[in-house]
């Protein structure tokens, strides 16, 4: 495989999945967001969103805090520092690939 093609496929697979990419992109813009906001913005089902958040948490990109606002349970999600760096690196890599293949 040529180096260019290898670069194309050599992306962070944790972030590259479309649903997780949306989650990380949303969290990148803010300090934190709750589960309901992420569900509303991504359009994912609860189960699907939970699954992707678990994967991101496992990779160390997202931290999840279960807390309360008054009596209401709240699940707060935020990108970790490695998560922010990974997303920025992913964007830079994608931009590089697009620029190279734009002819």
């Amino acid at each position: 495989m040529s180096n260019d093609l290898r670069n194309l496929v050599d992306v962070d697979r944790v972030i590259h999945e479309p649903a997780r990419l949306m989650i990380v992109a949303i969290l990148f813009a803010v300090e934190s967001a709750d589960f309901l906001y992420l569900q509303h913005e991504t359009g994912l089902t609860k189960g699907n969103l939970s699954s992707h958040l678990a994967r991101l948490e496992e990779a160390g990109y997202v931290e999840i805090e279960k807390t309360y606002r008054g009596k209401m349970p709240l699940t707060i999600c935020r990108l970790t520092a490695p998560g922010r760096e990974a997303f920025q690196a992913y964007r830079a890599h994608l931009k590089q690939v697009i620029d190279k293949t734009s002819g």
Binding site: A29, E31, Y37, I76
Partner: peptide, 12 residues
């Protein structure tokens, strides 16, 4: 708003 469409904390 937050009970309907969720809560966001913005970065400083």
């Amino acid at each position: 708003t937050y009970p309907r469409t969720g809560y966001v904390a913005y970065r400083r």
